[in-house]
Simulated scan of single mutants.
Amino acid sequence: MSDNSGHDHAGAPRITLKTRLHAWWEGYDLSGLKGRGGEEDGKPQAGTAPAQPAARGHGPGVNRWGKPLWSANRIEVAEKLWGEGFNTPGGHDHIPYLVKPLGLNPAMSVLDLSAGLGGTSRTMTSKYGCWVTGLEASELLAKEGMIRSFKEGLEKKAPIETYDPENFSYPKRVDAIVYKEGMFSVRGKDQLFDGMELALKPRGHLLMTDYVIEPALAGAKAVQVWCDKEPMQPHLWSKDQMAAAFAQRNLDLRIAEDITDTHRGLIVSAIQGLVEHLERHHLDHDTKLAVMDEVELWVRRVSAIEAGMRVCRFYALKPAE
């Protein structure tokens, strides 16, 4: 949690970091762009789209306002934040820790339901020799992820394809499923859980990380701001609701672990690294806007975490038939 000094409990310089970021922005004489929307301390902030009523009925890969979630500029910024081939926290060094419970080996087949640019899928394949199919809701991310798999010669062992999380089914059965911080934005969680259970072989492994919150904390201001401005509208469950979903499908939940501090640390460290990069490099106008949008997205997530939202790792086994 943060305090009024502008430092978090570990002493991370949150205000200093924000000041440096906005100093970088102002240094390029783009202060007039601050009228694009968004608020902090009652003042407009650059690069943030104004909050609008959530729209329903749009297909996968678009935000709640019906616009594409990803662009070439956003991908460039994301890889600068998280590392080549990654668009969310946790790069090559983090994935082995994350998937350790799976006991991956070359004989195993894996589904990655939050493939993004394919970094997690390719890391699992390269390190453990397993066969991974990455599924991604954004057509652009899936295309770019597949390009990266081709470049690494992993187009057969780590292909990236598109899918719709709200209507998930898979024609084959696999040894393991990995789903990294994606379930929180799915409205139909029960159908997705059913689809995952059906896609697992007997003795199959299911590993998920996701944002959760206890009902008593869901009304916190920072959580509500995050919910209102998150590109994909959150549909948060509590940790107990997640555990119940595993139990209802006879999945043996072996790990239900709070990894919030690790996740938050990855975000803060990445933003600090990005700010240091920005201070040394000139960016074009569109990329600057993408930088501000992406940083503010992750700052809002950190604020929601500090207000009580948690990040948990769940690991379960499907029983033998």
Rank of each mutant, 00 (worst) to 15 (best):
L266T: 02
A216D: 14
H235G: 09
A220Y: 02
P231A: 06
V268K: 10
K288P: 07
V268R: 11
A218C: 08
D252P: 00
S238V: 04
I259D: 00
G273F: 00
Q233A: 15
A216W: 06
E214Y: 05
A247L: 12
V268N: 08
L217A: 09
A245M: 11
R249Q: 06
Q224M: 11
H235D: 14
N250I: 06
V268T: 09
H285Q: 10
Q233G: 13
D240V: 13
R254G: 08
T260L: 02
L251S: 01
W237T: 00
Q272D: 14
V291E: 03
T287Y: 04
C227S: 15
L274I: 02
R280W: 03
P231H: 00
V223M: 06
A290S: 10
L251R: 03
H277Y: 13
S269I: 01
K221M: 12
D228A: 13
D286V: 09
H282V: 11
I259Y: 02
G273E: 07
L253P: 09
R280D: 11
E279N: 00
I267E: 01
H282I: 09
P215A: 03
A290E: 01
L251C: 03
A290L: 02
H263C: 01
D210T: 10
V268I: 12
D210L: 00
A220P: 01
D252S: 12
H282Y: 12
R254V: 15
L283D: 08
N250Q: 14
E230K: 15
A270D: 03
A220T: 03
V223D: 07
L217P: 04
W237Y: 13
H263Y: 13
Q241N: 06
A247I: 08
V212W: 08
G219Q: 11
A218E: 15
E230P: 09
Q233R: 15
D284A: 09
A247V: 07
I259C: 05
L251T: 05
D252R: 14
A290P: 03
P215C: 04
D210A: 05
W237K: 10
D210C: 05
T287I: 09
R280Q: 15
Q241H: 06
F246S: 00
Q241R: 10
R280Y: 02
D286A: 15
P234H: 06
G273R: 08
V291Q: 05
R249S: 05
A290H: 00
H263K: 04
N250G: 11
D252V: 11
A247Y: 08
